[in-house]
Design a protein around this nucleic acid. Sequence first.
DNA 1: CGTGTCAGCGCG
DNA 2: AAAGCGCGCTGACACG
Length: 575
Amino acid sequence: MEDKPPAAIGENGWVYMVLATGPSGDGGAAREPSFLLQRADATGAPAAPAAVVSSADLPAAVAALEEPSLRWVWEGTRRSYLPLLRAGTTVERCHDLSLTRELLVLSQYAADTGYIRALRADSGRRPAEQPHRDDEQDQFTLFDQQPPSATIGAVLQELQDQLAAVAGSPRRERLQLLVAAESAGALVAAEMERAGLPWRRDVHEEILTRLLGPRPRPGQRPARLDSLARELYRLLGVPAFNPDSPQELLRALHRADIEVRSTRSWELREHRHPAIGPLLEYKKLARLASANGWEWLESWAGEGRFRTEYVVGGVVTGRWASRGGGGLQIPQQVRDAARADEGHRLVVADASQLEPRILAALARDDALAAAARGRDLYQGIADVGFGGDRAKAKVAMLGAMYGATTGESGRLVPQLARTYPRALATVERAARAGEAGEVVSSHLGRGCPEPSPAWRRAQLSATAEEQRRADAAARSRGRFTRNFIVQSTAAEWALCWLAEVRRRLRASAASGTFIGELVFFLHDEVVLHVRQDQADAACALVAEAAADATRLMFGRIPVEFPVSIAAVDSYAEAK
DNA sequence: CGTGTCAGCGCG
DNA sequence: AAAGCGCGCTGACACG
């Protein structure tokens, strides 16, 4: 069944080059740190004497050793690779020890080795997260990212242990691909952080001024918000209050006989009162001013590029998180400020309805695959079972993947189950497993976390009230695991896509045609900044990479994963 | 004074 | 139209 061609980013036969901190570390010495470069074979066994290189010489040494069949091995990609990038050195592939460790500790596909058992025993005792160090360090200390005690021997040993845990896996191909894709993603993340999303300060400022008025003095409310606030006082018939305070706002609404339980926009929208319109506008604009206003612009995008730190594997499902600037939450309101440079274009591509297509592939649901054959999966579903009502079909599908139980969404799910029993059975099975305290897995073997000891204890509780709460917690975990199998596999598809886009961009550059670079990634969407005369080539490349991702993940299956691709000047023009 | 939590809302 | 998954960030607010 799995007659896949060799997995381009997950295949065998690599040699490794370990980059570790050198022997200088005697603790706080003022000496320039040095580094060890140790070649190792496909099992991680050392294959040559280690070379010692100074920090200043490292980028050149890495560039000189780089070759197509080599994976660079380091503890953390961002810390090791960003300084190399700043020096103009890139590498084709790597093996990120830290990311691989996090994958293996939760993966049901990892071989049952001593290393894996020790990791799991340790993760029970380990505090959840090491505190994040703000890096205002210089280049030298940025290189110095290994744990102080990690000798080259220990790093080599862990590499061997990780490779053995993958090689001995009952699903070796899948796990290999997952490990390779995760590390490839880490390279992309560092490169995108360095590149940044092209950002026009003047365009952003024009948007802010148009919507909010001129930039206010620090601590002052923008003019437009100020006038909306005064209008609210008048319409609600209450003296001045702070609309930014949920408590004060709630009290003001109640005094005007608007009986809301919260100040959420969706609840406000259900009421008819002259103040509701201006209040919703106030909330929208206040959000813009605080989250993506002038201060945000100066802090994160002032120099012509928006830069955020991507946290690879930062979400349990394998999605990326971000740190700084709300990197993955750029609102539509300001996306027009993301503009291609002169002589360039942005190529914006997103995978259409990725998650339901992933579900079709996971469940081998031929009926759902058939509905997915067209460009618009939801319309395909609607035409079969929902009288052509696309909105209903979409709500039903999302409800099935999220575990909706009430409302219209919950009501429509059974209708979906009649047409796509295999797909629904797949998410139901994941939900039941989660409720029972079991773990579930993505297609390539990313495991979801175990329930906490407190969760397990609560399931055995005695009193009726405790039992009720435990049942609610069980259902909550069921919704999590139900969604996990879909979201995590979708994240894997996107990671393979991203890695293939990068591989093709590099191959093209190596053969003399520089097309452009990846500059942004958002779960199921990529943005490239490309030379204007290469825009068509870039679009084709992105489409081919999507086909590669599907083949890498699932081999030959009847499910299509179309991507919509546009070459534009402004990010706002796309979709 | 700083730190942690909550409400709310942005993104997928 | 509804409130089901995953995140990060802000201002308000409570607390030490």
